[in-house]
Simulated assay, not measured.
Amino acid sequence: MPGDLEAQIEAFVDHYNHQRYHESLNNVTPSDVYFGRSQAILNQRERIKRNTLKARRLHHRKHAA
């Protein structure tokens, strides 16, 4: 049925633009880039990464001694 096809295409486009991370866009969605959210997302990821590495180092030092 044409309505089913249209619904499937709409679902695919929504997934592609709003949910699927794109490696060529630094692993953010096209909508994140379009709406200017990509840099904030990348900054947040970098903060999380730094904090995780810091916690791992502290944990390692604590248990290596």
Rank of each mutant, 00 (worst) to 15 (best):
M1T: 15
M1G: 14
M1C: 14
M1S: 14
M1P: 14
P2Q: 08
P2H: 08
P2C: 01
P2K: 07
G3L: 13
G3K: 09
D4S: 11
D4K: 05
L5H: 04
L5V: 06
L5S: 04
A7L: 05
A7E: 08
A7Y: 06
Q8Y: 01
Q8D: 05
Q8A: 10
Q8K: 03
Q8C: 06
I9Y: 05
I9V: 12
I9S: 01
E10W: 13
E10T: 08
A11C: 00
A11I: 01
A11F: 01
A11Y: 02
A11V: 00
F12Y: 14
V13R: 00
V13L: 03
D14H: 11
D14T: 03
H15N: 13
H15G: 14
Y16P: 12
Y16W: 15
N17F: 07
N17C: 04
N17T: 08
H18P: 08
H18Y: 10
H18R: 09
Q19D: 12
Q19W: 02
Q19M: 06
Q19A: 12
Q19R: 15
R20W: 15
Y21D: 11
H22F: 13
E23W: 12
E23G: 13
E23R: 15
E23P: 13
E23L: 10
E23V: 04
S24K: 14
S24A: 15
S24W: 15
L25A: 15
L25N: 13
L25C: 14
L25G: 15
L25I: 09
N27A: 06
N27C: 06
N27V: 02
N27G: 02
N27K: 09
T29I: 00
T29M: 04
P30H: 10
P30E: 09
P30L: 08
S31Y: 05
D32L: 04
V33Q: 12
F35H: 09
F35L: 13
F35Q: 11
F35S: 12
F35M: 10
G36K: 08
G36F: 07
R37D: 09
S38A: 10
S38V: 01
Q39E: 14
Q39T: 05
A40N: 01
I41T: 10
I41Q: 03
L42H: 04
L42R: 10
N43G: 02
R45W: 11
R45C: 03
R45N: 03
R45Q: 06
R45E: 02
R45M: 07
E46L: 15
E46V: 10
E46Y: 13
R47V: 02
R47D: 06
R47G: 01
R47I: 01
R47L: 05
I48Q: 11
I48R: 11
I48P: 12
K49S: 08
R50K: 01
N51E: 07
N51G: 12
N51F: 03
T52R: 00
T52C: 02
T52V: 07
T52D: 00
L53Q: 10
L53R: 07
K54N: 02
K54Y: 03
A55V: 00
A55D: 05
R56D: 06
R57L: 08
R57E: 09
R57P: 01
L58C: 00
L58Q: 02
H59M: 12
H59P: 00
H59Y: 12
H59K: 09
H59I: 06
H60F: 00
R61P: 00
K62Q: 08
K62H: 11
K62C: 10
H63V: 10
H63Q: 01
A64D: 09
A64E: 08
A65L: 14
A65T: 04
